[in-house]
Simulated scan of single mutants.
Amino acid sequence: MTAPSPLPLSVAGPSMVPKIGRLHSPADLLNAIQALGTVFHGRVAITVRDIDEGWAVAYHGDTLFPQQSVSKLWVAIAVMEAIDRGTLSLADPVTVRRSDLTVFHQPIRPLVGKNGYRTTIAKLLEGAMTHSDNTCNDVLLWKVGGPPAIRRMLQRKGIKDVGFGPGERILQAKTAGLTWRPEWAGGWGFLQARSKMTYEARSRALTRYLAAPYDGASANGVTLGLALLNRNALLSRRSTAYLLSRMRASKTGPLRLRSGLRSGWTLAHKTGTGQDLGSLSTGYNNVGILRSPNGHYYAVAVMIASTRRPIPARMRFMGNVTRAVIRVVGTSH
């Protein structure tokens, strides 16, 4: 359990971060967040950060948890930064090859024929951020220089306690206790190889991953990144607005954080969902930026490292976090 922590003024430099008003956090919200985290059966982290005023309340907010597809947010920021620099354009053509295919959720897969699929940076970004398409994200990842480039960006931007994994294919293979093979592009070979493993071998690999996630990030760190994004401290105003519009249009996780919204509230968000083993689910996440009807902003991260609770219970838990924010502090702004 972590104590409330303010958003540091020094993260992006005094010229980039607006002056923060009061730095105390509502005790009622802290109590509500900690109560929700305590009663949920599983390893969870919750952080709510007031973007406009700077305070944050958290439950296990400093612990590194698996991000899974939450990490697509950092790839998207790197892409938009390249667009701001002029080294990429949303209109740039891209051919996705069969060798680019990844694993698990990839709606683009049926479109990729023997000659590939012609698309654009904009369409890939839309696929990654609104449909959480793993192949779209991995193609964009390598367009901006691969995992090392994302890690450098996170460090340069002052987004602390947020790591970045080795890319979708290697990450999922390591999590399952396998070494990625190029012939598995598309996912079927990977799934077949995983199905031949013993339960004990997969359990050992998953335990290693949960103990030290290859894509680990803290809920405090994720909300710091979201806050800086919303303040235009990471990208140009135009690129920030574009990326947030893609996050508001997300089709994934409609019954997670979004299920707790009330009339007039909006959410720009990104989900993450990891692998299951038996009844154990891992990396079940939702992070985003809540906007109140009068324009007050909160960054929220709910990360479930592991749980045996069914999906409806997980979604209800996340919606309850949103409801707590709206109930406790929503009426004060």
Rank of each mutant, 00 (worst) to 15 (best):
S292H: 05
R323Y: 07
L255Q: 14
T223M: 04
V287I: 14
G288F: 01
V300S: 04
R314Q: 10
L228R: 13
K270M: 07
Y284F: 08
G225Y: 03
T273D: 03
L228W: 07
R316T: 09
I304N: 09
A301N: 08
T271D: 04
S281I: 00
T331C: 08
L229K: 04
T322Q: 10
I289L: 14
I311K: 02
L261Y: 12
T252D: 10
A301Q: 08
P310T: 01
R258T: 12
R308A: 06
A299W: 06
R238N: 15
R309K: 07
Q275W: 01
L267H: 00
S239I: 09
S236W: 09
T322R: 10
R256K: 14
L290Q: 08
G295A: 14
P293H: 10
M315C: 07
N320K: 13
D276F: 08
R256F: 04
R323S: 15
S245N: 14
I304K: 09
G278I: 07
L224W: 03
S281V: 05
M315K: 02
K251Y: 09
I326H: 02
A241M: 08
Y284D: 07
A301D: 07
T252R: 10
V300L: 15
L244C: 13
G264E: 03
P293T: 11
K270E: 05
S263E: 12
T322W: 08
R262D: 06
R258L: 07
N320L: 13
R316G: 00
T322P: 06
H269F: 00
A305L: 02
S292F: 04
P312W: 00
A233R: 07
G225F: 04
L290G: 09
R323I: 08
A324F: 03
G264A: 03
S306N: 09
A227Y: 06
G295H: 11
L290W: 05
G274Y: 03
P312T: 00
A301L: 08
P254C: 11
T273W: 04
H296A: 13
P312M: 00
S250F: 01
L290T: 11
G260R: 07
R256Y: 03
R309N: 02
T273Q: 06
T307L: 01
I304D: 10
R262I: 00
P254Q: 11
M315I: 00
I304T: 13
A299V: 12
L229M: 06
L244R: 15
Y298R: 11
L280C: 01
L226A: 02
Y297D: 15
G253M: 08
L277V: 05
G319T: 13
L226S: 02
Y298W: 15
Y297I: 07
M303I: 10
L228D: 05
R238L: 15
R316A: 13
S279D: 09
G288D: 04
L261C: 10
S292N: 03
M315D: 11
M318A: 10
L224E: 14
T322G: 09
A249D: 15
Y297Q: 15
V328P: 04
L226D: 01
S259Q: 09
S281L: 01
F317N: 06
A313I: 00
S245R: 15
Y284L: 10
N232K: 13
G283I: 05
L243W: 06
L290I: 08
L277E: 13
A233N: 05
T273Y: 01
P254W: 12
V300P: 04
G295F: 12
V328T: 14
R238C: 10
V287Q: 03
R231E: 14
